[in-house]
Nucleic acid binder design. Structure first.
Lengths: 123, 123
DNA sequence: GCCGTACTACGATGCCTATCGTATGAACGT
DNA sequence: ACGTTCATACGATAGGCATCGTAGTACGGC
């Protein structure tokens, strides 16, 4: 069901996006990737979507270039996977990989983010 | 039994160290504080010690000034508490506060750090 | 009162990063 | 084939940060 072939298959044919392999992912880098309100928002949105999201589906109060930058940071640090589908770039959390490496971590962060958002009204 | 009075009582009398109140602690800042190998090591050591540790009790491959810097970042972001005892400065994890704000987060990070350390031989 | 110890403060440096605007490339629909 | 839409790349900028060395300050012991 085409769940994910992140590092292997160039889905659309031309543009390829480098992803770190599972063993390459480092805790400090994941935490660093998550330690930005904008990126935390992206990750929460992806988690809530439970699937793939278009880049433009996530509204952020920053410019497009900055948005691209944040998505790239998340991808290069192993938090999300990206692939092209036509002109759109789809994004998805790398839940399986993260769960295998750091069980419970992502859920903890997501829950913490939800709690704080409910507590403060914003992230 | 003098467990902790972090924000209130200057224990030793003269030097006071500013700590954020529990409500001031922000998830992104905590993650940022943890997103550094050196600081991650500090936090792991404090968690293992289950109590207070002298600054010098944690061996780090950096200079003393840098060490001070990392401890300050951890304190100002609400991850640890510090107070003076004589000439020594004691450090402790703010487990209760962090657990109240982000239940399970710290344990998840600590476990992830342990797993990665076991996997790679280092942090 | 003096000295040693422990940590801090300050200044410097070089790197990383979050942000932007503009120009470019890739795919889709007509 | 052409234009539109989506995202990228590149260059620039400003701020933050990890690191260091040196000088200074607070506390405890002699």
């Amino acid at each position: 069901m085409s769940t994910d072939t992140p590092a292997a298959g160039p889905v659309s044919g031309a543009r390829s996006l480098p992803h770190p392999a599972r063993e390459e992912i480092r805790l400090a880098q994941v935490l660093h990737a998550l330690a930005d309100p904008m990126r935390l928002r992206i990750v929460c949105a992806l988690a809530a979507a439970e699937g793939e999201l278009n880049c433009a589906d996530i509204e952020l109060p920053v410019s497009k270039s900055t948005c691209t930058h944040h998505f790239r940071v998340l991808r290069e640090h192993g938090v999300i996977q990206q692939f092209y589908r036509g002109t759109a770039k789809m994004n998805g959390l790398r839940r399986a990989d993260l769960e295998a490496l750091f069980p419970g971590l992502i859920d903890g962060v997501l829950r913490a983010a939800g709690l704080q958002e409910r507590r403060l009204g914003e992230l």
